[in-house]
Write a protein that binds this DNA or RNA. Structure first.
Ligand SMILES: NC(=O)c1ccc[n+]([C@@H]2O[C@H](COP(=O)([O-])OP(=O)(O)OC[C@H]3O[C@@H](n4cnc5c(N)ncnc54)[C@H](O)[C@@H]3O)[C@@H](O)[C@H]2O)c1
Ligand SMILES: NC(=O)c1ccc[n+]([C@@H]2O[C@H](COP(=O)([O-])OP(=O)(O)OC[C@H]3O[C@@H](n4cnc5c(N)ncnc54)[C@H](O)[C@@H]3O)[C@@H](O)[C@H]2O)c1
Lengths: 196, 196
DNA sequence: AGGAGTTTGTGAACGTACGAACAAACTGAG
DNA sequence: CTCAGTTTGTTCGTACGTTCACAAACTCCT
């Protein structure tokens, strides 16, 4: 809306755009403060800034991607991160044959350079895109060098000490959830209340 | 556990592996039926089969990937899907210059062949990996040709008729959630109960 | 057989997310 | 100024997911 030059908008419009209930949206926004005007709605630019400030979008976040295989390459090439304040400061891989390979103007470094990278830049978030077997080891090393936020694409549960935040993206599970619902749709019908 | 030849396991072990509370795990499993033995635990092979049956893993699911760019390539190359019963039956892209390109023994077809693909194979799930602007259009076409389950990687909310299931994977949001918590950790401290 | 030790399945308490609904606050027309 | 129309902020009831805790059920050792 900011890009389109829209000055003001209602909670109904925002809710539709976000795909949620308008009451929920208003309640959520109310936790940030009272930034709307009754009878009018929200001023797009003002609200936008307030949300950005609250989520932490006003500062730049440094991320490191470990495991530059299929997925790692896609992530490294993705421009959608930088536009939201995320800057990839290093690409690391254990595979010797990948060293120095150029990905979008950044060359792949050895995984054991992680500590040096953290010292050089500050690193806020570590992304794990290695095979599942290596994931816990990579995670442990990240924690050792002081990284406290991890995004994990490997299909494993990572063990981390308290204070470290892990989020997992499991694409196979996403497909399975869809498949499960699909199976339900095709099912012979619910046992109870068949004619309801 | 099945691969490792473990015959039996307790809800505590399963809960640890899944990263959840053991009571929750037991309650969830209880919805499938009473497949455990008190004082012993669950028989791995038996439980594994029962879960597979319930989730829909006993049948093969056909998926189509639309938008074979950075992310689409990674998804097409990913072996983790097939091992869970998902088979990619077609790769589609609108870009003429990509036609016929070979990706893991499968050649990229034109997007307008979608209907033919659906007729040839049965297609259970459509994956959208196109830029955000194209996503709704691709989605509409998928719905038209009868696809009722969609996995969307584009950062947009898709409008679909009732009965169609959409799951969105928004990687930028995942990073933002981590960044938000990171900001909280570094914050000057909560206003209330500072010394608690 | 009996008792000690395990582990499941579930009843009940708890907290919390969600959505309906409404008063309060604003705009604009007459 | 008043009144009709609009939209926010919040209260309240409900439903649901989560966890504790314990009886029931099983094994194994003596
Ligand atoms: N490709 C996908 O679309 C996709 C989808 C879902 C999940 N995943 C998961 O993401 C992860 C990566 O997938 P991928 O397809 O990119 O695999 P890949 O094999 O193409 O890439 C893995 C990379 O990690 C590197 N690596 C291995 N061990 C390492 C270590 N200890 N330290 C640093 N680097 C190491 C390898 O050299 C390789 O370059 C896997 O866990 C996979 O299950 C991938
Ligand atoms: N690459 C990533 O790591 C990443 C991460 C998060 C989100 N995403 C999202 O995933 C989507 C794809 O990202 P990407 O990096 O692969 O982009 P990309 O530009 O590399 O690939 C997009 C592909 O879609 C094709 N396409 C465009 N319009 C189409 C249409 N109407 N029908 C069929 N094909 C069409 C293009 O020809 C291109 O090949 C984007 O929406 C992006 O925001 C990507």
């Amino acid at each position: 809306m900011l890009d389109e030059g829209i000055a003001t908008c209602s909670s109904l419009e925002l809710a539709a755009a976000a795909g949620v209930n308008s009451a929920k949206l208003r309640k959520d926004l109310s936790y940030l403060g009272s930034y709307g005007t009754r009878g009018v709605g929200y001023e797009v630019e003002y609200l936008s800034y307030q949300i950005a400030r609250e989520i932490g979008l006003t500062q730049d976040w440094h991320i490191v991607i470990v495991g530059i295989g299929n997925l790692g390459h896609a992530l490294a090439n993705y421009s959608g991160f930088s536009s939201r304040g995320f800057r990839t400061v290093a690409l690391l891989d254990a595979d010797e044959s990948r060293q120095g390979e150029d990905v979008t103007g950044m060359s792949i470094r050895r995984f054991d350079e992680l500590e040096a990278v953290v010292a050089e830049y500050r690193v806020d978030i570590g992304v794990i895109a290695t095979p599942a077997i290596s994931a816990q080891g990579v995670c442990d090393r990240m924690v050792e060098v002081g990284i406290r936020s991890i995004l994990n694409f490997a299909p494993t549960i990572l063990n981390v000490p308290q204070g470290v935040d892990v989020r997992r993206v499991d694409l196979a599970s996403e497909l399975q959830i869809l498949a499960f619902h699909e199976q339900r749709k095709a099912a012979p019908g619910p046992d109870i209340e068949e004619s309801a």
